[in-house]
Design a protein around this nucleic acid. Structure first.
Lengths: 237, 237
DNA sequence: ACAGTATTTATCCAACAGGTTAATTTCTCC
DNA sequence: GGAGAAATTAACCTGTTGGATAAATACTGT
């Protein structure tokens, strides 16, 4: 059976690159599900379909493994961020796109949220050691700076906001809602993650930020019926 | 030595209430510093100046200990929230006060942020079991509802926002900035927690939310020189 | 003063978890 | 076709950790 040239009873195959990827993927799942201290090296190995020894052979000890996962996560979001060009849009539309992208990225990558939470609980101990991540600047700050400038010049925006503050605020509105949806859900006694709730949240965030910038209340600020809900939240990249 | 009536060589004293409090305080520190899985029962005992057996005697096992800490944290913030009466203030001022309170509470109680993060990483597993917390509704939602209604009626606010969304947004703006200050600090290469940065952040948040509600850009929205910085962030409760 | 109970101390332990050592198998190049 | 290196497996080892057991000490009411 199997391929013609293959020897019959192969106990295992060599696949260093594939193995490394499977390890990192399994580690990402494990660390985001259980945090740093809660993660189990044995479970990562099992999930990767590998022997525990492989983790140390291909990546390193638990801490190095965790840092590698974290770096990978930052790498991924930065790479997607670069694909979002806001230059051609008029300023309010650009801000909307930015908010939608952030929201959808967090929705599509919940592990990213968990990893950031975990790293912040560790006071960024690992990130500080990472030379890689430090050099991976988010393009968003400069994008926002340019958009705000254009908006002020065109008269669309009434004030010049500090782009870093705005960046943090936009991230905050999505991040907190999603990362804390579990406790908030219990407190409010309702599911913050069903489609209706998510549509309303996105509308609220866009409305809040645009109203602040333009001075005119966006229709979406109030809870709308959100027609074509699916399309509205479609991936923006 | 010691009190007159006290027998001389007392090996230890009884103090069940005090012991329980010390245990919970030590546990709060430990859990907020290391998360659930990272917390060490032995360290909690040591910090409480107690024997490890005492934890199980007075509170329960690690999970029960953690839940007790969490419930205490919610109890504390809810109690402070109730002390904040916004009825007498005109609507924009009430919103400002709300934001300042939230910001300052988080600043004064960093363990609360950590505990929430930890609990959310656990998907609110413990909170769901807690009957106590579920009945501790935050008065803020109703406060906000009333303020928004008054603001719309008086013409101060241009739109009626969903109070739950606004509550979450206000919490988000402070929470994310503080809970993620470690990673954000590394990314931006600057300290987000020095006094100047904190003043600017508070001004930004107030400006953003009030501009959105009133349609008029608040002076503070831009980065101001923030005169009397200390007073501006004084405790609001 | 003393009996009974509440509180605290002093040890112990079995399971676990991260990491290591050593043997085994596959691949590559000549 | 086989020698040497790369990749993988299997077994093991040691410190830690949550939790339990048992003994000792302080307090309370009578």
């Amino acid at each position: 059976m199997a391929k013609a040239t293959a020897k019959r009873t192969l106990k295992w195959q060599r696949d260093p690159e594939g193995m490394r990827l499977r390890i990192l993927e399994a580690a990402k799942q494990e660390f985001s599900a259980h945090g740093l201290a809660g993660a189990r090296v044995d479970r990562i190995a099992a999930k990767a379909g590998a022997n525990k020894r492989m983790l140390y052979y291909h990546v390193g000890n638990k801490d190095e493994l965790y840092l590698a996962v974290l770096e990978g996560a930052y790498d991924k979001i930065r790479s997607e961020e670069r694909g979002l060009d806001l230059e051609h849009l008029d300023p309010p539309e650009a801000i909307r796109r930015l908010i939608e992208f952030t929201w959808n990225y967090f929705l599509r990558n919940p592990e990213f949220l968990s990893l950031l939470q975990t790293e912040n609980l560790a006071r960024a101990k690992h990130l500080k050691r990472s030379t890689k991540v430090k050099s991976m600047h988010s393009p968003f700050v400069e994008m926002i700076r340019a958009v705000v400038r254009r908006g002020v010049e065109s008269g669309d925006f009434q004030v010049a906001v500090d782009p870093v503050q705005l960046y943090i605020s936009i991230a905050a509105l999505s991040f907190f809602y999603l990362s804390n949806s579990a406790t908030l859900g219990v407190i409010f006694g309702r599911d913050l993650l069903d489609q209706k709730a998510k549509d309303e949240r996105l509308a609220h965030m866009v409305g809040l930020v645009l109203a602040a910038l333009t001075g005119q209340s966006v229709a979406l600020f109030e809870t709308t019926k959100a027609p074509k809900s699916r399309a509205a939240v479609a991936q923006t990249v």
